[in-house]
Amino acid sequence: MKRILVSIKRVVDYNVRVRVKPDHTGVMTDGVKMSMNPFDEIALEEALRLKEQGFAEEVLVVSIGTADCQQQLRTALAMGADRAIHIQTDADIEPLTAAKVLLTLIDREQPMLAILGKQAIDDDCNQTGQMLAALWDRPQATFASKVEISGDTARVTREVDAGLETLEIDLPAVITTDLRLNEPRYVKLPDIMKAKKKPLDILELTSLGISINTQLKSVLFEPPAQRIKGVMLKNPQELVDALRRKGLV
């Protein structure tokens, strides 16, 4: 079966203004709204569109984390994913470990494509897709803004610093999504009901035989340095004078 694997992460909603805990041991996440990582939502949307265009027959979503992740997996099923796997763990998972977990699922499920968000908006690592591609020994097309499948290859337009770059990659492969790849669909109420009946399998991470030792330890959390508010000027003349005094124009 032609299958696309999409990994999703449960993160603090992008509208929440994150604050550091007063004791500097982390950020405040108690009681804040949690959502699917926005880049992963784009990844799922792309997988669904490829399926609707006939390039794939099944969209499989995977999430690694605590039992709460199942909420985001249900959302993914409501958006249109066919099946979900929850890899259960209470540990903090580093990108390299996440990539190893996803690789074991790839070995089982043999997808033609794995689509991931380019980064999660909590740790901002931007690593897992590239690491998965390396371990899988398959192509990667990161920061995708356009994906065109043709036979056993894909043409992917990537957002790079210099502009847009196009790569041709053999499938299977890993694609990571940038913001402008698509606009994810809204979930409709009947689909939420339907999603409750779709299969969601739960696997303990420890059953996969992957060690989860944390190699990078976050020992301190601080708020960022704040810029100090400057002066309000009355007219363009004052602005040009101010810039000239600082030698900027």
């Binding site: 994150v18 908006i121 901002d124 301190l220």
Partner: peptide
């Protein structure tokens, strides 16, 4: 991390 809203050591 968190889009620059926190700095971690």
């Amino acid at each position: 991390i968190y889009a620059g809203n926190a700095i971690t050591t």
